[in-house]
Amino acid sequence: MTSSGMRWVLGGAATVTALGVGRMVARRRRRHQPDREGGWYVVHRGITVNRPRDAVIGFWTGQERLDRGLAEWATLERLDDNRWRCVASDPAGGGTEWRAELTVDGPGRLSWRVTEGPVAERGRVELVPAPQGRGTEIRAELRWRSGRVRQLLGLASRHDPDLALRSALRRIKSLIETGQVLDTRHDPSGRSPKQEQATDRIRERLTVGGRP
């Protein structure tokens, strides 16, 4: 084969490879993006708590336990019988603050909307008895409004409402079942401060399952 022919073959192979890799990356990106409905990003997440529904509801009505659970990142103020105001700050210490209004819609049903915050958000939670007497399912739906550019920036700055929801559900389950939430961040190790920062970034990657 002439050298010109070889160049065409190599160029063709490179093009096909680039197209294939590009399609694979695009497919993976699409799979990891939340659904869109009328301009809102929507995710549904759930977790099963090994306690009866009344005990899960009871957890939130015990002020002492609630304060202990929220101590690090949020305060609650009661407005009337069914409405609460929540002021929450970024658990990672980024200085971001949200104000939200929570409404109890009925036994085991709660909704909220962010009144002041970096991203317009609203959501609802429903408590459903789990099958085979395995406790209570906490079913959550979260909607947030964010443009595509902002969404990309949000992911880059590690603020992702979906991740925050998943983390919150795990935290709530652990609090209800054990009364505590474990954390191993900055446990003793032989790492230098720089290595610790790199490890923190990798931990975040592990939390998101490798998602950027």
């Binding site: 090994n50 998943r166 795990r170 389950k173 652990s174 079942e177 054990t178 474990l182 954390d183 191993t184 961040r185 931990r203 990657r205 592990l206 939390t207 998101v208 399952g209 490798g210």
Partner: peptide
């Protein structure tokens, strides 16, 4: 369920 603080990686 409650003792692994970073479960997503191993779930995947």
């Amino acid at each position: 369920d409650n003792s692994n603080p970073q479960p997503v990686f191993s779930e995947k």
